[in-house]
Simulated scan of single mutants.
Amino acid sequence: MLAPERRNRIMHILNQHKQLLVKDVSLELGVSEGTLRNDLKILEEDGLLERTHGGAVLPKPPTQEYTFHSRSQVNQTEKMMIGKAAANFVQNGQCIILDASSTSLELAKHLVQYDYLTVVTNGLATAQELTRNPHISVIVVGGVLRPGSSSLEGLLGKGLLSQIHADILFTSARGFTVAEGLTDFSVYEAELKKTIVSNVSKVVALLDHTKLNRRSIATFAEMSQIDTLITDPGANPEFLKQLKGVEVVIADSL
């Protein structure tokens, strides 16, 4: 079992039982207790759990439910800047793919004046924003709608996406490091994005500075597969210097 799949299983167990013991889960997954403790350490660093003596528990819930709306309010100014800068990469007549992130939604707001675009997305809010322009053809990728979410999740759209050869994928991520590339919490979402990355001509990552040098469970794009990173002025210059072969765009102030 690969590490990303194993960590996803750990989170599934934890979400079911609210707590876990290292000795029990190591037997269930067929790995050593040392390996499992290392997984728990990584998951704790990503804020997904809290380690306890001999196990782990779910982190204390935030005071506000972490819905799409609440996520969109985090670093909102930076996301607006990044979305505006990303629109400069779009040309009339292209087929582009936008993920369901709040940063891609900011990009969508700058596309309403474009003509003859085809946009593929699994973001409901993004799709609704784009329908304001009758010259944009919007294709919504199917999936499961979770409570409090604005995205259609799962692998139901994988067959459709494997047949679409888009010009650009605009995507956010839970984290981005030199070693792991673009990472996401959901293994299923990562698998879906892997399919997209393998078929598009260009990958543009839309990441505010808090996503940089941070990792999550599953990689969906290696650094060599990323063409452009658009970030904000808060990005660490030392980290950006490590991104060999990646075009880096610092979004201007609004």
Score class of each variant (00 low, 15 high):
11 M>T: 09
15 N>S: 07
42 I>T: 14
27 L>C: 04
18 K>Q: 13
25 V>P: 01
38 N>I: 12
36 L>H: 10
5 E>D: 13
28 E>R: 15
7 R>S: 02
42 I>P: 03
31 V>Q: 06
8 N>T: 09
41 K>S: 11
24 D>A: 08
24 D>S: 09
29 L>D: 00
12 H>Q: 07
41 K>W: 09
36 L>R: 10
41 K>R: 15
17 H>K: 03
38 N>W: 08
7 R>L: 05
13 I>T: 12
25 V>T: 06
24 D>F: 08
5 E>S: 08
10 I>S: 05
38 N>M: 12
37 R>C: 10
13 I>D: 02
36 L>G: 07
6 R>S: 00
26 S>P: 09
41 K>Q: 14
13 I>H: 10
16 Q>G: 09
39 D>I: 08
20 L>M: 09
13 I>L: 11
20 L>F: 05
22 V>K: 03
6 R>N: 00
14 L>K: 00
27 L>T: 06
24 D>K: 12
16 Q>I: 09
11 M>Q: 10
24 D>H: 13
33 E>K: 14
27 L>F: 02
42 I>N: 12
7 R>T: 03
16 Q>P: 02
31 V>H: 08
37 R>H: 14
40 L>T: 09
25 V>A: 02
26 S>E: 14
12 H>T: 10
6 R>G: 00
9 R>K: 13
32 S>F: 11
20 L>V: 05
39 D>R: 07
10 I>T: 11
13 I>N: 04
14 L>T: 01
32 S>M: 10
33 E>L: 06
19 Q>Y: 09
29 L>I: 04
41 K>T: 15
39 D>S: 04
13 I>G: 00
12 H>V: 03
17 H>W: 01
19 Q>I: 02
36 L>C: 08
16 Q>R: 14
32 S>E: 07
37 R>E: 13
16 Q>S: 13
41 K>A: 12
40 L>F: 13
34 G>E: 14
30 G>T: 01
14 L>M: 00
10 I>V: 15
15 N>P: 01
9 R>V: 05
25 V>K: 02
11 M>Y: 10
22 V>Y: 04
32 S>V: 08
27 L>A: 08
30 G>H: 02
29 L>C: 04
33 E>G: 08
34 G>D: 14
17 H>N: 04
16 Q>N: 11
34 G>N: 15
39 D>Y: 06
6 R>I: 01
18 K>G: 04
18 K>Y: 08
34 G>W: 13
39 D>H: 06
40 L>A: 08
24 D>T: 12
35 T>F: 11
36 L>V: 07
17 H>C: 01
39 D>W: 06
28 E>C: 12
25 V>C: 02
25 V>H: 03
16 Q>T: 14
9 R>C: 05
21 L>H: 04
14 L>N: 00
22 V>G: 03
23 K>D: 14
17 H>D: 01
33 E>T: 12
26 S>F: 13
30 G>I: 03
32 S>A: 07
30 G>P: 02
35 T>P: 05
14 L>G: 00
42 I>L: 15
26 S>T: 08
32 S>N: 09
8 N>F: 02
11 M>P: 06
22 V>D: 04
8 N>V: 01
29 L>G: 01
33 E>A: 11
28 E>Q: 15
